[in-house]
Design a protein around this nucleic acid. Structure first.
Lengths: 334, 334
DNA sequence: GTATGGGATGGGAACGTTCCCATGGAAACG
DNA sequence: CGTTTCCATGGGAACGTTCCCATCCCATAC
């Protein structure tokens, strides 16, 4: 591949001048610039980003890292879209690491991205006391957290009001006359889990509905867990009449179990899921869900990161977006 | 961040020696190695991959690029998983570019990844005569194509037998007594589209079912197109009794339209989709689909790439995986 | 005409590595 | 004991940029 030097030789100018041209610096005579541009075209020269990055310490790398817990989860796919679209507009490239809820893998990706000298990172911490991310911040990297905060750290956060979202879902179910409302939650260490449980409990308390501890189930935040926890609930001597699932994957898993058990929704059991998907209305039945826009979260996070890159001394911001209850047909009055 | 030099100073050895340690070269005395390792730990040193990459021309960068047409499509998410898992095992990092079916964006990501001096690329070409990818190969990069080939190029390919997959789906529908079978296909320029249409036509021909051209619809390969093409089909004076949708997104879009029109599947219309999803059984009704394993495709592609990196002179391989018809409940005898 | 200034350009160090080559010393051999 | 060999280590150039500094040229002011 052609280098700066090749272009310089071809255009009969110095390396410095070519560098100035590709960086759009004003101090280049029009004629020179044209000569250089011609040479660039002829050699189909591409700046070597590796060398650029090695050399410059300013935010010129045009690369941001995105570290996600689970790319299988459609929610995070939306986040990717949001981040990417914003980054693209500003000519930033995005490097994605998917750690699949595996903390070792998370650390590995964090290390790799630091080694790549990214300008900044957008991360969904595996839990609130994520040491690895704290370490990254100590190393001077700009970080924006999504979905989950970081305890005791001054850091930009974009998330959703999980407590209120869950509260709304439960309130809705209670309004339909349900009292035996189960909650399939995510992994207990994930901050959003606690927030969603809190919303559940607050709603139950507000309407004086007793919380039966055996109706709150948790293990992991994945499809398998959703399926198996739902099975446990259905096998209870006094099974729930409604279930609130704490994320996408859990919802899908729970639906699978319910369908396998030959029960029908919402006649036998009502379902509200956290996380909406664009194809939720094609589910059986069209799913009533608490929508949080992954796209919006991703986009805002990227904007925040880019802004902070421009002004590192801006105080940390905590952006809490609202959720919306999308009522479809998976719930029925009791 | 600590550099090689810092570590060298701390361990009282030369930079070269430290470099040897981090590259596991044998020619280092045990005592020296331990000294260096201690220093690395104390300074929590991370090799700067940017500098490593700049310097070394061998396949030591441990970075592969993955360029995908649409990360919204669950199929490609599975591909990502497959690639990533294989890469992780070999300590490679993956850099993902999602070009959202936008050729300009595709070129941008291809350029960026070249500029990043990746070791190799896994790409799903936007179409069979993709000039951009050809250019990348001319530049000497190792490329593996997935899902779609590259006309007239000696390149590794991992794909699925689309023609046979489609054939099987149509054969199944004909076996149920359907004759007015619509086909909602993807973008006409995408090679897989043509292959799937060919399978459709071969099946129709084999069983002597007349092909009504107005039942073959195409525009783009996305959710919106699926929805609107399905609408056109339903508005036909003599609507189809079955529909075969050529991918994931088209299927979901078509389902949306059918549900909105208050028709029921499979009573009013039977549906077979290309692409299975882990939650297909939770759709309304559980979807009959042609399964292709994105995970397997991604994994094989990564293996092929890594192998070729080790042996650049290996002749190009074309891996064609089989599809499988998963019969659920979205079809009914006519 | 000389001095002053500023815009355009070139030269070269530096970024953090790798890798070739040089060097020193211990072991092995006669 | 001297010579050879080999292993462990160090020195320093190179990778392709950026950016500081120096230089040169030309215009303007005196």
């Amino acid at each position: 591949m052609a280098t700066l030097r090749d272009v310089a030789l071809r255009a009969k100018v110095s390396v410095s001048t070519v560098s100035r041209v590709i960086n759009n610096e004003p101090r280049v005579r029009k004629k020179t610039r044209e000569k250089v541009e011609a040479a660039i075209l002829e050699l189909s020269y591409l700046p070597n980003r590796t060398a650029q990055r090695l050399r410059s310490l300013n935010a010129k790398n045009k690369l941001i890292g995105l570290v996600l817990p689970d790319i299988q989860n459609p929610f995070y796919v939306d986040v990717v879209r949001g981040v990417e679209e914003c980054a693209y507009e500003y000519n930033f490239a995005v490097m994605i690491g998917n750690f699949a809820q595996d903390e070792r893998k998370e650390k590995m990706y964090l290390d790799v991205l630091q080694s790549e000298s990214v300008d900044g990172l957008i991360v969904a911490p595996s839990h609130g006391r994520d040491q690895h991310i704290a370490r990254v911040m100590e190393n001077g990297y700009t970080v924006v957290c999504i979905d989950r905060g970081l305890i005791g750290m001054e850091v930009d956060i974009v998330k959703v009001n999980n407590e209120a979202g869950a509260f709304g879902a439960i309130e809705y179910l209670i309004g339909l006359g349900h009292t035996r409302i189960a909650h399939i939650t995510g992994h207990p260490d994930i901050p959003t889990t606690a927030e969603r449980v809190a919303g559940y409990e607050r709603a139950m308390a507000k309407y004086g509905v007793e919380v039966d501890p055996e109706l709150i189930k948790s293990s992991n935040s994945d499809y398998q867990s959703g399926a198996s926890l739902m099975r446990e609930l259905l096998e209870l001597p006094n099974p729930p009449t409604a279930v609130f699932t704490a994320n996408n994957l859990l919802t899908l898993g729970a639906l699978k179990t319910i369908h396998e058990s030959e029960r029908t929704i919402p006649d036998d059991i009502s379902v509200v899921g956290f996380d909406d998907m664009y194809w939720s209305m094609s589910l059986n039945p069209p799913l009533t869900a608490v929508r949080q826009s992954g796209y919006e979260i991703g986009r805002k996070a990227a904007e925040l990161l880019l802004k902070r890159l421009a002004d590192p001394h801006r105080p940390a911001v905590s952006l809490v977006l609202d959720t919306e209850l999308i009522v479809r047909q998976s719930c029925k009055p009791r």
